[in-house]
Design a protein around this nucleic acid. Sequence first.
DNA 1: ATGTAC
Length: 502
Amino acid sequence: MTTREVAGFELRKVREHVWELPREGDMNVPARVLASESLLEEIGGDDTLEQLRNATHLPGIAAPALCMPDGHQGYGFPVGGVGAIDAENGCISPGAVGYDINCGVRMVRTDLTYDDVRGREEELVDALFEAIPSGLGGGGVIGGTADAIEGALERGVEWAVEEGYGVESDLARCEDEGRRLDARPEYVSQKAMDRGRNQMGSLGSGNHFLEVQRVTDVFREDVAAEYGLREDGIVVLIHCGSRGLGHQTCNDYLRRIEREHGDLLDDLPDKELAAAPAGSELAEEYYGAMGACINFAWANRQLITHQARETFGEVFDADPIDDLGMELLYDVAHNIAKKETHEIGVDADGNPAVGDAVADREERELYVHRKGATRAFPAGNADVPEVYRGVGQPVIIPGSMGAGSYVLRGGDESMSVSFGSTAHGAGRLMSRTQAKQEFWGGDVQDDLEDGQQIYVKAESGATIAEEAPGVYKDIDEVIRVSDDLGIGDKVARTFPVCNIKG
DNA sequence: ATGTAC
């Protein structure tokens, strides 16, 4: 048996790209890292492994706590973490969802080719930057009236399309059709709504961006054709979340858990893993509030999509849908928890088990926490929209602004390996603070333009430094692991053309 | 990630 010591943790190699931290002490289950040796080494460079081990202490966790190949340290629970927790006897943890509830990515395809855009990058990047609010604080594309915010929280993309910010076909091309039916806006605080009010249709800051890209490689022709992708085609990628509204909601519930469920908290190795016991009033309220924030984030990405379509229409003097073919390819959430039914291994007593201890497999309703992890359901799954059910759901994974991104399809192994999940990005290699010491925004911007013809426009130079290509892991290596494991299969690779950010 | 402040 191969073992490897990383950052003081002894990991057992289960098979290629699967590393296990065996159960010991108060761990309820083992932990597993899905990574190549080089990525594993990078994952050991911060507190990810300790956070992953801590996550195995969560009550009711029903299978190994998982770290995707792009994992890095987060608040309590690692980014790139997947935690499947019994929805009846376990718990739900806001820290295992993340502060930016339904941070996610969508891709819009077009009929344009790189030749159509070449030489017009600056015009396009300026127009997009003008049309789409970005940066910290307020200012959205629409005013947040009481009706608008209520509609977004309750009905997500459905509300936005009804208001004219999209087309009917957008709905089917979102996870959950862009609307969580179990959203309960009444459990979102007034303070959270006030923060979201002026941010409806805004990118935000940090790693959030809108990027025009060109398809450089197609790996699976048949699937790419189903997704409407072809080599040299132009696509638009939008990465953002629920802004101050989701952030405030996460904060509100973390504070309430501290006040109302201190006992559960005292048993956990890290206070930041704060969780509400399944079945408690607080768990129900958090789940409903989280669903409303999820809807808000979807409406936000829909409003930004609308602005991008309008802008392309003006720049290319054409109808964005009829002439430019700007249809939504897909929208994926990567900071969420969701009740899903999965098969888990159980021992003779019906308790969660792995390896030799597995006596049987049983279906359980679980809170699947995906924090910096993307749902990757395979072909045939009933939750994959009908248009894609034959090939598997699209999985959109952004890399850094200097490296490009990938479109994958949910792989056949994802249900048995990772509760139907894969990576969500390249994953950070260094902190924002360190990034600002290593890079200067203006220099990064000049290098991208002069060296790679990538046009970047941002509200703040500091953000460009924080997001410099050098602060990220190798996206190709992350994707190689996903593809090798069969949890998310390579369909196409893209390369940046222009990028706007906070 | 984030009105970068309890």
